[in-house]
Amino acid sequence: METIQNFQILWYVLIFVLLLGYSLLDGFDLGIGSLLPFLGRDKEERDTLIHSIGPVWDGNEVWLITGGGALFAAFPQAYATAFSGFYLAMMLVLFALIFRAVSMEFRAHDPARAGLWETALVVGSGAATLLFGVALGNVIYGVPLDSRMEYTGDFLTLLRPVPLLFGLTGLAAVLLQGAAWAVMKTDGALQQRAFKAVRVLLWVNGAVAILYFIVMAAAFPGLPGRPLFYAGVLLTLLGLVGLFFSARKRNDGAPFWESSCSFIGLWLVAGAAQFPNLIKASNDPRLSLTIFNSSTGLHTLKVMSVIALIGMPIVIGYTVFVYRIFKGKTRPSDSY
């Protein structure tokens, strides 16, 4: 029993890392997508913004696909409960991601309808981000479950204040991530506007994050006793303070890392509150789906561990290689 528990904990950590990686990487894509009309004043600027994420967003989305696959492989009960239980919300996420995915490619091939595809990109990116946060907020904060592990709420159950706060916190972090990416990848007037967005979003993030920490500490009585909670709070605050000074000094490289640091802090607090639950039952804690009652068998977890621990370092290796190819400011020639 001891062994399988170790693997269940390992897989909680691995899926946490996959979703964290997703939020940081696809986070800047979704952030650029959502901020497109605010940062890009004319077609040329919007071209630059889209080309700054064009070569990498696809690979970034695979972090989500792999995270979903890993959840299916390690904790199928949680995957099945959340995806079927939150059916309409999941469908909306999916439709948003579909439009986000095709919008950039279609825009490049179909300049006559560029405005339409830009709208699809903005709405798709923003809606997907907000809904992801709300979904995550629900599984952490808790939803009504029955003894067969099935969700018993409805669509409106998902829209309670605490999960909505998760959605807003995630959206604010993703927008900051996008603005910080724009600062790194652009120059001139566009970059100045991105700096301005970073400065505004910095305060928005600070306010939302503090509210989030207070609400989390109040909603999870055990949380203030966990060191990871304080580590998370500290990382977020450090990231935001660092960002404040970097933005003042017009440093174009550091903001992306400081924004990521702040985002990681939010995730650590979420993880500290959630572990070892996967989906908390709001009606009766004994009905919660935990990493211990929702996992696959030991053999599957072991096989998966071998695949992940060999495969993911290789993935990270060539991902870094490809990011280095596109290093520096986005050039007009980096087009479709």
């Binding site: 696959g69 890993a70 299916f72 492989a73 199928p76 995957y79 599957t300 096989v303």
Partner: peptide, 12 residues
């Protein structure tokens, strides 16, 4: 989940 899940995850 024991069998189908790992195949999807490995694909990723």
């Amino acid at each position: 989940g024991d069998i189908f899940g790992p195949l999807l995850a490995a694909e990723g």
